[in-house]
Amino acid sequence: MPTSDRFEGAKPPSPPRLKSTDLPKDMDGQAVEPEPFLSGHPILPEDMDIADLTQAQLYEMNQRLLEESMESERPLISPPEATSVLRNEYSNSPDFLAQIETLINRGYNIIIRAKGDGDCFYRALAFAYLDRLMRFTGHSNDRLAATTDMLAKAGFDECVYDQPYEMLQSLAQLRASRTNAREELWQSFTDPATSNYIVMYMRLLTSAQMRIDVQFADFLFDPESQMQTSVDDFCRRFVEPLGKEADHVQVAALAQALDVHVKVAYLDGHAADGQVNFVDFSENASHGGDPLLLLYRPGHYDILQKSA
């Protein structure tokens, strides 16, 4: 596994450690019994090894650090950049660099970054989806309109989804013919007041798809315990709350819910020959046209585009 310590997001950060020597002096002498029934403190004492922690604790620490370490000044969705900018972030990792070249050579020239806040997959996919709706007039909004029925069928109260849906619909009405339509879309996605409701709607759709479509039931595992979990439990804990990262199964569910072909490029530094794995979701979606492209790097999703 190639390392890239210099770069945030390339590798999960290690958990914080508190040296026992940093503890107040007055604790010396008297044995301070930890309160076993209060599992209070996310700090590792020096004499405790990370291997002693449970999967669950590690996951939680990771999630926490991810949230703390993300660059707070980065917009929720950044303006388009050349894919080549990624070279700067991986100058130390030849395997990653080779994969970046592969992407560029195959015409994937543009990257639109989503903030790494745990919502990146949902935000990136929603942006890519609306961006395409806007530019290709051949696409109808019918599928989007049908999603509210799906949410109702999955048992969600209308008051939960009606407002986020209205926001999404108003963005779906944007047409490229209008001046500054793309700018408007981007502005909406950088404004938390709109952007986070769009994320919320995407999460509800993902959850609804899993709840309605029985085939998902066999693939839902608690990322912490690796144990199989019920659909309801999985959705309530790992899909519906904002800030919970998406895994393969969430990607598959949302692609199906929106009925769009999603293609994810895996930039993971795993292939020495610079090959990039592409994984297709809902390849036979009735939406037609080119797939929505996402770029996956360990723990993070961005939008990828071919230059026009």
Binding site: S39, G40, H41, P42, A56, Y59, E60, F156, V160, M200, R203, L204, S207, D222, E224, S225, R236, R237, E240, P241, L242
Partner: peptide, 12 residues
């Protein structure tokens, strides 16, 4: 540090 199985806030 709630145990992992605990239910969290979501807009639902």
């Amino acid at each position: 540090m709630y145990e992992q199985a605990s239910e969290r806030w979501s807009p639902v």
